[in-house]
């Protein structure tokens, strides 16, 4: 019995992604032993920080059977408009930054929710439209200027570290406190998705929306909540990015949806909905971050990066879909 359980575990999507990561790390490590150092951990976690926040929201939306490509635009408009307000009125408050931006994110999320949950418009087209509206509004009404004069108090957050460490060459590596945001978020997501009726309802809707409705889930309300919450999380991601990068620009996150969707799908979330785990998503984000950050170490030039990442995504999605096709065709019990 335990052996079967182990075999099942060893062939889950998560496990396959984990093997890939291990193999990749070994390859990179052989090509360049510098990879095996603590500094890599810090660089990677910094690189993954924002992607993790976005991946968490995208994962939940995809599990419910939808998709959201509007979060980069929502992240930009909420963070950028709030920072403009902060600079204009000299409001140097982290809480205000997060709360006000979240409120804006909520508004755009509500538009998505209305279009998708209430009016049954295809999620891709609806969020593409909202993305265009948000992005156009930012650039047209708020301007294109980049700000790097973040007020002191808010800026101090980017210089607060959990711990730091100096390597033999004397270079100091520091783990930013902001990493706590995705960590807390993912833990909460894990608990909600796994241990609440609401969380299981998200899976149920993604598995069979009609059956979920019959079972008594309020499908419209749950989906509305998800898209609205997704707007809030997008804003939180945008604000965190602004603090982390210590500058705000009206469209620096545009195009991020590609990598995020890729990471989520490579992590085993089925694009058709109903399947996906927090662990898988974290691994997916990790895999893509390693590829993006360390290809140079194995001698692949930067210009090939996009291509190699694209290749990995195509293979990842290909494998996932072949596996699910296989399950669908295998003999039933």
């Amino acid at each position: 019995m335990n052996k079967i359980k182990f075999k099942n575990f060893a062939t889950t999507n998560e496990a396959i992604v984990a093997y890939t990561i291990v193999v990749l790390c070994l390859l990179i490590g052989f090509a360049n032993p510098a990879f095996f150092s603590f500094s890599t951990v810090i660089t990677l976690s910094r690189a993954m920080l924002i992607t993790l926040i976005f991946a968490a929201l995208e994962m939940v939306i995809i599990i419910s059977g939808g998709i959201d490509v509007s979060f980069p635009a929502i992240a930009c408009i909420s963070a950028y408009s709030t920072i403009k307000l902060i600079l204009k009125f000299d409001i140097d408050s982290i809480a205000f930054f997060y709360i006000f931006a979240s409120a804006i994110g909520l508004c755009f999320g509500a538009i998505n929710a209305y279009l998708i949950a209430k009016r049954n418009i295809s999620p891709l087209i609806a969020t593409l439209g909202v993305s265009s509206i948000a992005n156009g509004a930012t650039l047209a009404f708020l301007g294109t200027k980049e700000f790097s004069n973040i007020p002191d108090h808010i800026d101090s957050l980017s210089r607060s570290y959990l711990f730091s460490f100096t390597n033999s060459a004397g270079i100091k590596y520091q783990m930013t406190t902001l990493i706590l945001i995705p960590i807390v978020l993912l833990i909460v997501f894990f608990i909600v998705l796994k241990f609440t009726t609401f969380g299981r309802g998200i899976y149920a809707i993604g598995g069979d929306e009609n059956a979920a409705r019959i079972a008594g889930f309020n499908v419209v309300r749950i989906k509305s909540f998800l898209y609205m919450f997704s707007g809030v999380l997008a804003a939180i991601g945008g604000v965190t990015y602004t603090i982390l990068m210590r500058q705000s620009s009206p469209q620096n996150l545009m195009g991020a949806e590609m990598m995020v969707i890729a990471a989520v799908v490579v992590g085993g979330t089925r694009i058709t909905g109903g399947h996906g785990t927090v662990l898988g998503t974290v691994l997916g984000v990790l895999l893509i971050a390693i590829v993006q950050n360390n290809l140079v170490m194995v001698g692949i030039p930067t210009s090939y990066q996009t291509f190699v990442v694209g290749l990995i995504i195509v293979m990842g999605t290909g494998i996932t879909s072949i596996r699910s096709k296989h399950i669908a065709n295998s003999a039933k019990i």
Partner: peptide, 10 residues
């Protein structure tokens, strides 16, 4: 129901 309305993914 005739189509059972079960969730295949759970």
């Amino acid at each position: 129901y005739q189509d059972f309305a079960v969730f295949p993914n759970l």
